[in-house]
């Protein structure tokens, strides 16, 4: 066991954990989107789990730092919050938020993060970016909503650990990066409808087709 201090609280945690895991296990929330317990190497892409650690001159991501004896962690310094807010606003500048149309259970993870770090869910002062992506992409048994997706890669990893051959992938790159499904037509590459990717998605960017039909109806009534 390892002893660490988080926000003045002394914790005892298992070795080999990351700071993020140790905090989450002890009921200390650190905003995160791309963290997955089952992933051996941290993806470290969402850039939300910043913490301040004594001895470092700037905030670092909690998902990439292992616990060790005597570590002193602060989760809410002004520097930490500034970076988290900045990253969050960037994500929200691509994620049009329409609570009435969004099938996530409210408050969704993004709303909880916003509340935790003390910002609204709009990207101000940043403008919204329109990438000209389609509203929906047909994945065979699923629909993918690229504008909602935060590219946390949880679905890709989850699908990969269930199917030996990963059916989901990132495609393209940069601001145009999307999750994609490209079947070679081989039987082993047909989605088994396990819905694991749908369940793991924090922002309802993947929908089973049945849910999608309800959703379309909702959209029509709303319009």
């Amino acid at each position: 066991m390892v002893k660490i201090t988080v926000d003045g609280k002394k914790l005892e945690t298992e070795e080999h954990l990351t700071v993020l895991e140790a905090c989450l296990q002890n009921g200390i929330f650190i905003p995160n989107l791309c963290f997955l317990k089952t992933r051996p190497h941290p993806h470290a892409s969402c850039r939300l789990c910043f913490v301040s650690i004594e001895g470092y001159d700037r905030p670092i991501t909690a998902c990439t730092e292992r616990v060790r004896d005597g570590l002193v962690v602060k989760t809410d310094t002004p520097e930490v919050r500034a970076l988290q807010r900045s990253a969050f606003k960037l994500l929200m500048s691509l994620h049009p938020c329409n609570a009435k149309l969004c099938p996530t259970e409210k408050p969704c993870l993004l709303m909880r993060i916003a509340k935790h770090i003390g910002v609204g869910i709009n990207p101000k002062p940043l403008e919204r970016i329109n990438r000209g992506l389609p509203d929906f992409v047909d994945f065979g048994s699923l629909y993918y909503v690229p504008n909602r997706c935060v590219l946390c890669a949880r679905c890709i990893h989850t699908c990969r650990s269930i199917n030996k051959r990963p059916l989901l992938t990132f495609a393209k790159r940069g601001i145009m990066t999307m999750v994609a499904y490209f079947s070679s037509g081989n039987d082993s590459e047909v989605c088994s409808n396990c819905n694991a990717c749908v369940d793991i998605c924090p922002v309802a960017a993947l929908l089973p087709k049945s849910a999608f039909i309800n959703f379309l109806e909702a959209k029509e009534t709303h319009a």
Binding site: E127, R173, T177
Partner: peptide
């Protein structure tokens, strides 16, 4: 850089696009 960003992390993927815009 915006065109060459790999698209993995939030700051580079979206931040450089805002700088460019």
């Amino acid at each position: 850089t915006q065109k060459e960003s790999c698209g993995k992390c939030t700051f580079c993927r979206i931040g450089t696009k805002h700088l460019l815009d």
